[in-house]
Design a protein around this nucleic acid. Structure first.
Lengths: 337, 337
DNA sequence: CTCACAGACGGAAGATATTTTCATATCGAC
DNA sequence: GTCGATATGAAAATATCTTCCGTCTGTGAG
């Protein structure tokens, strides 16, 4: 009789009280420092099952409970924000009813239902979030711009990494690591990349120079000879200001490397090793320079790391030395890491 | 007219005082108990951003807080099961520290962090766990270096995008679009980023300048006043060569923007708008400069696009003009696509 | 129509969990 | 080594959740 019903409704009376060392089975409770809090893994329904559960159980619920269940099923995200009191008010019921509903849905109490609710909301949101792949347009809100740019650049990176010819990188790295000096040519946006590379190579004790001025670049290229490395960076592959010095260095017998988006471009003719960069589609607001830069930087970073690996003996101390040298350029007081 | 000027000056009364180092704690978010309207979540970071946030904020955390953050990032599902006491015990800290960490991560308290954790866990469970990137080591073959670098940078981009405060970007863009002139300060690796930004702004017809020489930067900063925008880029947040000109510009009444990986750093004190960059963990061979650069560039690109959108009338023709101007610098013969 | 009863329901006491406070421990600069 | 500043945890103060229990509603019998 009443015992029958009681079992149905009042399951596990003392379930939440942690004290009486009830159920020890804890699959992955490794980190339970001192075991004072038994980890409750439980067979509680996951967030996915929650919606279904609500529909299944709804008929067998009392009116007030149904209101709670409905609110929960209808707006998991919103309800997850509410305390037990809040949800009670929203549904025009009492805290006790909310807890009873939670129990009926298979959770030890409202706290756990709320957790599952948050999970459900997150799942729904992630599932509903369609990847923004469209072009950036004039009236995009900033949030979209950020998301689109980030995705585009990620795509560019993935493409570049996939398309990069490892053998060419290997050869380029070997040449650079062994080089007496490394000269890098680049103008415009690529000029910054060339400076970035030169900066980093300098940091590990190599003799590297970035030439942005085309005249000086040619002037210097004349000095190059076997054992030196000349590296040209041009997205279009046909920037004369960059091709020219590379050609000169090439003629002088230096080892030449080209980083370009067009491996069939003119620059490749004078390059011993060609490293191909990938580019995202460009749009009116997003000049090609932007994604080519991302791509170029990745290639340049790979070269740098490669060279650093091969010259580790000298690179490592040089790196830390350059760090220390900069220390006094920082303001002193700052909390410890 | 005069009233206009007046407004410009009366604009910020107490402006000469640097902002205190820490941001005001987020006011306890409403909607906890009101339950009247199904109003959506505030601007509390969602579960997606959490992992990114942990990585971003980790450096500015104290040791105990880092332990908590690490536990949370490492096992969101497990931690979501724990009470504040449980998590404190697991990490060998106190409840207070757990709460402090939650606050630092952008939640009103542990309760909300726990909710987000549950969401994150659910998401992770539904989506296949992405590959974990190992550190780059000395004897990695080049192919691995390429793959790891690309993944790291992608991660950095995703983190940055997730952690970027859109409102701050919005404000920065608005200020820049309306600015009489924009000065950008950056040294070292950040100097290249600053040049990149200035270059692009120039392309769309803005008056922008990148200052790499700290002395000249300060000299120029003195000229700044209300209606001008000064932008400082520093990963560490405490590069004096960059902070100094920003401070001067700030004192002169210019609108100041900081792009930094340490929003709690000194540079933030003199910045009206702080844009936070994220960083991948660095290793011996992979200095922080590398990933901070990626992150900074994304932010800078967002600013650029935002400004271009808002000044579209002048930006679009200026862009195409700059393309045409460069045409004759390319070698002529090349198939199109 | 009234009464008695079963069960739903909410108010408030009781139990937990979270947040805040404050004294102490620790760290770093000088 | 001393001093000042910051970080940290213990415990008090709140907030939140759960349980208990009395009231209320609806139902069916008399």
């Amino acid at each position: 009789m009443s015992s029958d019903l009681k079992e149905n409704f009042a399951f596990r009376p003392g379930r939440r009280t942690a004290r009486p060392g009830t159920q020890p089975p804890a699959p992955r409770s490794a980190g339970d420092a001192d075991g004072s809090v038994p980890s409750r893994t439980a067979n509680r329904p996951g967030p996915t099952a929650l919606a279904a559960k609500v529909r299944t159980m709804a008929p067998s619920m009392t009116r007030s409970m149904q209101r709670v269940a409905e609110a929960v099923a209808h707006d998991p995200a919103g309800c997850a924000q509410l305390t037990v009191t809040g949800l009670a008010e929203r549904t025009g019921t009492s805290e006790a009813t909310v807890v009873r509903t939670s129990r009926l849905l298979g959770y030890p109490g409202y706290r756990d239902l709320r957790l599952a609710l948050a999970g459900l909301a997150a799942q729904q949101e992630s599932g509903a979030a369609p990847a923004v792949t469209a072009d950036i347009v004039v009236d995009d809100p900033i949030a979209d711009v950020v998301a689109k740019l980030a995705l585009d650049e990620q795509q560019t990176l993935a493409d570049t990494a996939a398309a990069l010819d490892v053998a060419q990188v290997e050869a380029a790295v070997a040449a650079m690591a062994a080089a007496r000096r490394v000269d890098v040519y680049g103008v415009g946006a690529s000029g910054l990349v060339s400076q970035d590379l030169a900066q980093k190579l300098l940091r590990i004790g190599m003799v590297a120079h970035s030439h942005v001025d085309p005249h000086l670049a040619v002037t210097n290229a004349v000095q190059m000879r076997a054992g030196d490395v000349a590296l040209a960076i041009t997205h279009s592959g046909r920037t004369v200001d960059v091709i020219e010095p590379l050609r000169v260095a090439f003629d002088q017998g230096a080892t030449t490397i080209a980083i370009t988006g067009r491996p069939d471009g003119e620059v490749a003719q004078y390059a011993d090793h060609v490293l191909t960069t990938s580019t995202a589609r460009e749009s009116e607001l997003r000049p090609a320079a932007m994604s080519s830069r991302t791509s170029q930087l990745l290639v340049v970073d790979c070269l740098f790391i490669g060279v650093a690996q091969r010259t580790y003996e000298t690179a490592a101390p040089a790196l830390s030395a350059s760090y220390e040298a900069l220390a006094h350029r920082h303001s002193p007081r700052q909390r410890t890491r």
